[in-house]
Amino acid sequence: MPELPVFPPTVSPEAKPFWDATAEGKILLPKCNDCGTVIWYPRTTCPECMSSDVSWFEASGRGTIYSFAVVRRNGGPWRDALPYVLAYVELEEGPRILTNIVDTIDLECGQSVEAVFADTGEGNALVRFKTV
């Protein structure tokens, strides 16, 4: 599999705990202290109940493939990475997150995956996944 390009994120003030944790190989998710919902993508206002009382907890890093695409045409920095896998992974904690599967294009919906972390060089990492 070709190496995927790594783009540093824009770190919003509200998502900084998420990004800081990725540098240590951890996925921190925000959870609403008032209604208990797990929030994705990371932010500190609850889209279910409007609360701003949000705390962070560590996710397991395990999940299953909700859907995946094998992208064979793209330009720019992605050209050299073709074909690559774009996927939604459903984390054990619930959220379906957009990501890449890095180790194979031979996949199925429902397959188990675990997180890997791609260092951006800016004090954080991108959360990608590999099959288990």
Binding site: V6, F7, A69, V71, Y84, L86, Y88, I97
Partner: peptide
């Protein structure tokens, strides 16, 4: 755009996004 850092880095072009829907 608030979602950009949680999607953009993974190469989600139009083809890929629609393929995700087709696959599911």
């Amino acid at each position: 755009t608030p979602e950009v850092s949680f999607e953009g880095p993974f190469g989600p072009n139009v083809l890929g996004f629609y393929a995700l829907a087709a696959r599911r």
